[in-house]
Structure formats: structure tokens, C-alpha cells
Design a protein around this nucleic acid. Structure first.
Lengths: 338, 338
DNA sequence: GTGAAAGCGCTAACAA
DNA sequence: TTGTTAGCGCTTTCAC
């Protein structure tokens, strides 16, 4: 069933059917009604691939996520999908495999489908595969890269503000020896988060001790490994901040398995506030980032860039706020009983 | 940049470029090399929307999921996406909102994009929106509907076998009073799971008591509500099976909050074995279903149906197996100390 | 207000 | 082995 067939049945031209489908005001209400009736009657659904070809635009945005298994991403996707659908666009999701040049392949997939924009939910990237996007004038929205430019927008979380809240909370609970389990070493957002931690500590007059700092992988195993490693030492921090909730949950598991009591002996703070953080035991004190708000910002950057390209992208900021639950408590009374 | 432009530069026809792109053996290695070099050099990526229009097939499969926030689905998606990409196809994901006719809208989205098949990850459906799929000869793969036909395949989990394992496990631990928190009342897979529970109980000579049966919603709140409701009664079951892990986790939370000890006072069994089930405290004894295996079956049904339509779909079965963790233990010694 | 016709980028049947 | 050509379903000038 095509537009022409409908036209034939309705006794009009295909142009008129097209106009009806697109709600053009150039058609008599009468004709429109008649055509629409036939469309409904036949259950006709226009072929959007033809529209895409004709217009050179697929009405699709690409979403590149590193690990769909981290609940943060599905939660975000849900919000973004709702916005995208509401505006009659579509979302093409690709899980990027950091190994084996999966990045280049994902970008190619996006290019071949003629997406109108790409969202990259990772800051740890070789920029090279993305040259292809710029060359093809496909707008890109990134997170925490803090670089914007022609066709390139970025949304950065205010980790400094966030870490300040967390460290202040711990300081008020009497903690002085505070550790940090980060993301990947020396890369993009991981560096940002670590630096924000260091900044907050200094800002509040606390000393950052290198031996209390470890790296993870944004997943549970990384948090476990880092926590295990920290526990080998004689002196322990009384509280630990982490790069994200999954890391914190990994740390929590190791502590539980090794018989430590949280928060009595050690306090843990996550980052993201995924649904899961409320479900673990003890529930996780964490820095909440709004997935819905992030999705809104991402979407507005995409649409902005699609107004008329090439456009200068935007640099936006989003905040994170402390949510106190049960994984933080008063510092244990050891040596410095104060 | 188009195929014709490449042809021009290479001094060949667009047909030849097309052949090179599609790895046709009809081209001299020499010509192919020259053309390929120019393609690489120009960073040319063919427009798949044109191919789709021309061939009438988008190379895309649609995936309809009810709740991307339930970790089961991302875990499944990951496996399915890998398979789909490997075969140079694409996945179009739609979260179906059961309310406000979101189902019909999702189906329409799929139709308009000319997908080559749709996977419906829910059995509780009004069949009506799916008529449109059949009418347009789009193969459909469902779960737990136990109906197959022309262009309709189904993959059913062997809940009877699974529930048998779980009930046997509990029986061996001395449990006799076993309850069940199901999914939605009277719908598709929910009914299947409940019936399987009843079947297993009878099969193992145990009595099913209606007052120990509740319904949930496959999410944490549903499990919480059902558990809360069960706790109002004077007599409690000593063990509870659930329709899925999220429900079990909800039950676990309520028990913890109300000061019950799991598994000392009451045992809980989940279903799915999502990653999370290992992370909660106590870790969840559950019935493991393989996401990877399910994805393989789903994908094979899709490809099968695309060989030559209309084809008779298949009815497949997949098993679930007990994984014992810490949420189940010996029945408490109350009256029948035995 | 409506229709005729060209063409988006690609593929495949046919011709050479 | 390579080229020519028609046309997939749609939108959009340009006529009428």
C-alpha cells in the first residue's frame, strides 16, 4: 500500500494525500476528511524510509552508551526516549564496545542511517572515530568533556559542587580520613570526579592522602577490587567517596563480606542515585543526578543543533545533590576521639 | 557524497561502485581495489535509507519492552543487540507504555520504519494493535504466549520445571507452608507462573493455600505491597516464591524493614536471576533464566521468519534453573517441629 | 485547492 | 566484466 494507491482510491493525486498526511493547510477540509477516511480504512502507514531519502534526514538520533547494564543508562534512556518520541523522532541505541574498534563501528552505523545527531555518553574516547561525524556535519552531544564548538555541545555535571556537599556532610559527622574510589585512571570524567574530590577536601581543610585513593571501572567488580585493596592496609579511611553508585555497591559488598559494619566502622557515599542505591543494605547515601533533567538538556542540544547547521554547540552544566541514606554515619571514635 | 560521485571520481559507473560496496564477485580485483581506495579516501558511507527504500526492507528489527528499568531487559538487550549487529542489522527499541494506547503507537513506529520483524517482550497484551503487524506481514516473536502460527513465533519458559525445582528445594528444607507473589492478575505469563507454582506444589504433595497467594506488578513496589499485605495475617507462610526478582526484592525490603530475619524466619525465592539478585542482602535464591540463550532463540526466530515469508512460526521452550543463595534456609521450627 | 512531474541514493535487470 | 536505466515511496516546486 502506497500513497499513490490511496490517491487512486480517493480519486485525488498523490500530492494531495501527502499533504493530508502532513497536515498541510492547503487542502479543503472536505477533501482531507475523505482522504483521511480511506487512509484509516486501509490501515495505511506511510513508509518513512522514503521520506528520509527524499529529505536527506532520517529523523533519528543516535545514542552511544558504554554499558547498558549499569542502571544509570536505562534510566536515562527512558527519559530521552519519551522526549524523542514525543517529537516524532526515533532513537537508535548502540552499546559501544571499547575494545576491538567497536567505537568506529558504532559511529559508522549512525552515519549509514543518516542520524540527525549523536549523543555520546562517555568522555573517555579516542576522538578519532568522531572526526567522521564532524566531516558529515552530524551534531554531537557529549558529557563531561567540557569542550564545545561547531556542531559540538557538552553537558558537564558540577562535580565540584557535588563533592563539596558530600565532604561537608562527612566532615560534620566527624570524618577526617576520607578516601576515594574513582573510575578509570586518567580519563575524561574520571579525572573530573577525582579532581572535584581533591578540590572539595582542600576547600574544607581536609588532607587528601594518596594511599586512600584507588581506581575502579564504574562497575561492581572495580569497586570490589579497589575496596579489597584498601583493606589490605593497616590504616583505613573512615569514609569513602566513589565515582558512581555501582562502584560504591561493590565496596559495600566487600565490606559486608569481610565483616565490617557500615556505617558504624566506615561510611560510603555513591554518585548517581540509581534506583538500586535505595535497595541495597544499607541503603546508599549518594549524590543524586537527575536523569530526566539530563535528558532534557541533551535533547535541547540536539534540536538546537538541528535548527540550522552548522551551529555553534552549547556548554551546559547540571548539578548533583546529596541524598543522605544509611551508608553514612558518625565517624568511629578511634585515636583522635576529639 | 553519493555512490555516483564516487563512480565519477573512479571513472566507473555507479553500478560498479554498488557492486564493490556489496562485495560482488563480478568486479575485477583491480577495479574493486581502485574503487575501494577512493571510498576510503573520501570517507564515503553509503546511505542505507536509500537501500531500504529500494529493497523494501530496512534491515531493522523492532524490540518492544514493557519496562527498561527492570534489569532483565537491558541484560537481554545487550545479548540481542550483539547478535543483531553481528548480522548487519539494526535494533529499534521501544518502551511500551501500557497506558494511553502506547502499544498502538509503538507498533505504528515499527510499521512506519518498515521493520523486518518485531519482538514483543510481554504476554499481557490486547492483541488488537498487533493485527496491523500481521496485515503488513511483519513477523512477530512473543514470549510465553504459547501461540504460534503464520509469521508468529513464541518462546515459552518452562515454569513448571522451574517451580518444581524451587518447591522441591524448599520442601527439602522442611517448608510446608509456601506462598506465592505473582505478577498481574489473570494475564498471560503471570497466569503461567502462578499455575506452574500450583502445579509444582500439588506435584510434590503440598497444599496450596489461597490466603498465601498475592499479586504484584513485576516491580519492587508490587512486591512490597503484596508482602505487607501478607504480614497482616496471623499465620504466615515459611517461604514465598515470586513471579520475578524485582518482586522478591520488594518482599525482602519489607521483611527487613519490619524486622524479620531472612532466611531464618522466612525464605524467599526470586525468578530471572538478574545481576541485582546477587547484590542484595541477603543475596537472592532464584530461578535463573539465560538472557543470552533467550536472545539466541529470539534472533533465530526472526531470521527464520525472514527467509521467505509467510512462514509458519515456531514454538520453542527454554528452561530455568535454581540458583541457591542466601535467601532460603531451613524452615523455622514452629508447631510442626517434626 | 489540486495535480503533474522530477528526483532523493541506491540496486538489479538487462544490454553490451 | 562493466554500463545503462528504471524505479523503490515520498515531497515539493511549478502549473493550472
Amino acid at each position: 500500500m502506497t500513497i499513490r494507491r490511496i490517491a487512486q482510491i480517493a480519486g485525488v493525486s498523490s500530492a494531495t494525500v501527502s499533504r493530508v498526511l502532513n497536515g498541510s493547510s492547503l487542502v479543503t477540509a472536505e477533501t482531507a476528511a475523505r482522504v483521511q477516511q480511506i487512509i484509516d480504512q486501509m490501515g495505511f502507514v506511510p513508509d518513512i524510509t522514503a521520506t528520509a531519502l527524499r529529505s536527506g534526514s532520517s529523523g533519528t538520533y543516535g545514542l552511544l552508551i558504554p554499558d547498558i547494564t549499569n542502571p544509570f543508562f536505562p534510566e536515562f534512556m527512558k527519559s530521552l526516549e519519551a522526549l524523542v518520541i514525543e517529537h516524532d523522532r526515533e532513537l537508535l541505541v548502540a552499546t559501544i564496545d571499547f575494545h576491538q574498534g567497536g567505537m568506529a563501528r558504532s559511529v559508522r552505523r549512525m552515519l549509514t542511517r543518516r542520524v540527525n545527531g549523536v549523543v555520546l555518553m562517555a568522555s573517555e574516547i579516542e576522538t578519532e572515530p568522531f572526526e567522521a561525524l564532524f566531516k558529515n556535519r552530524v551534531p554531537l552531544v557529549t558529557l563531561d568533556r567540557k569542550k564545545s564548538g561547531i556542531g559540538l555541545s557538552d553537558i558537564a555535571t558540577d562535580y565540584v559542587g557535588a563533592m563539596n556537599q558530600a565532604v561537608l556532610h562527612l566532615k560534620e559527622l566527624g570524618h577526617r580520613q576520607i578516601g576515594f574510589i574513582g573510575g578509570f585512571q586518567g580519563l575524561g570524567t574520571s579525572t573530573l570526579r577525582l579532581e572535584a574530590f581533591v578540590h572539595a577536601m582542600r576547600n574544607l581543610g581536609l588532607t587528601v592522602r594518596d594511599e586512600f585513593i584507588r581506581h575502579g571501572d564504574y562497575r561492581v567488580p572495580g569497586g570490589e577490587a579497589a575496596m579489597t585493596d584498601l583493606l589490605i592496609r593497616k590504616t583505613l579511611p573512615t569514609a569513602i567517596l566513589t565515582a558512581n553508585d555501582m562502584t560504591a555497591i561493590g565496596a559495600l559488598r566487600v565490606l559486608r563480606d569481610q565483616g565490617f559494619s557500615v556505617p558504624r566502622e566506615i561510611s560510603i557515599v555513591g554518585l548517581d542515585d540509581i534506583q538500586l542505591s535505595e535497595l541495597v543494605t544499607p541503603s546508599l547515601t549518594t549524590l543524586h543526578t537527575s536523569r530526566a533533567e539530563l535528558a532534557r538538556l541533551v535533547f535541547s542540544c540536539l534540536e538546537h543543533a538541528n535548527k540550522r547547521t552548522p551551529t555553534r554547540g552549547r556548554q551546559l552544566t547540571i548539578s548533583a545533590n546529596l541524598v543522605v541514606r544509611q551508608s553514612t554515619g558518625p565517624a568511629p571514635q578511634r585515636k583522635k576521639a576529639r
